[in-house]
């Protein structure tokens, strides 16, 4: 059985040294679960956002359904998916993806909506086709808002991946769950700190990308 306060110090550096390979494996797992979920989420959101922009009336039901998915707690969604897909990575990816949809769609639509009417009218007046106007005016101008949505979705997903530990996955969440069961501080702290670090690194990465892709927005300040 477990022993309370297995070690007196908070961080057992030896343990970290001994388990560096496992930490690397879990890093990869955490990162790939996040990337796959946000990636699929982006593709689905793009499709739904295009539908919502084309047929405005569909935006309300789309946000309703994605909002519903967003509201269901992760542990419950994992459980509900067990009879459908089983206890595996597919389960985790479906659930994690469903949490990204609301955030990404909202920002896609808000971003496109934020493009000034005068710019659109000028583009029409210059002779842009609908399609060219969408891809060359609306999407580039919406990029800062779209990427802001991806940042929020990514950071949220990194946090949620830890809960997939109950499915036998978890990325860094594995360490948190193990640490809980053994009352081992080092494992819990490794799990939490690395998870926060991963979220921060990805967040900064998106920020850098946003700056690089929208130089006009930066120079305006």
């Amino acid at each position: 059985m477990m022993v309370l306060g297995q070690t007196s110090q908070l961080v057992d550096w030896d343990w970290i040294g001994r388990n560096i390979d496992q930490i690397a494996d879990r890093t990869w797992q955490h990162l790939s679960l996040t990337a796959v979920s946000v990636g699929i989420g982006l593709v689905i959101s793009l499709a739904l956002a295009i539908v919502a922009l084309r047929w405005r009336w569909s935006y309300t039901p789309i946000t309703w359904v994605t909002g519903l998915l967003y509201t269901i707690p992760s542990l419950a969604l994992f459980a509900l998916l067990v009879p459908v897909v089983g206890l595996n990575a597919t389960n985790a990816v479906i659930a994690l993806t469903s949490y990204t949809l609301l955030i990404i769609i909202r920002n896609l639509v808000a971003g496109i909506d934020s493009v000034p009417d005068a710019v659109l009218e000028a583009a029409d007046g210059m002779g842009y086709t609908r399609r060219a106007r969408f891809w060359r005016m609306e999407v580039p101008l919406a990029l800062p808002v779209i990427i802001a949505g991806l940042r929020i979705a990514t950071v949220t997903t990194v946090g949620l991946v830890t809960v997939t530990a109950v499915l036998g996955l978890g990325g860094y969440g594995y360490f948190i769950l193990r640490g809980l069961n053994t009352f081992f501080w080092t494992q819990i702290l490794v799990g939490v700190v690395l998870s926060v670090a991963l979220a921060t690194v990805l967040d900064i990465g998106f920020l850098v990308m946003q700056r690089a892709l929208s130089p006009w927005a930066r120079r305006a300040r």
Binding site: P116, A118, E121, M126, G127, Y128, L141, W216
Partner: peptide, 21 residues
Amino acid sequence: AHELRRSIGYVIQQIGLFPHR
């Protein structure tokens, strides 16, 4: 329409310069 417009200059009050260009 888009071909017609390419042969007509158009200036509006809000200008509508493309902010990203």
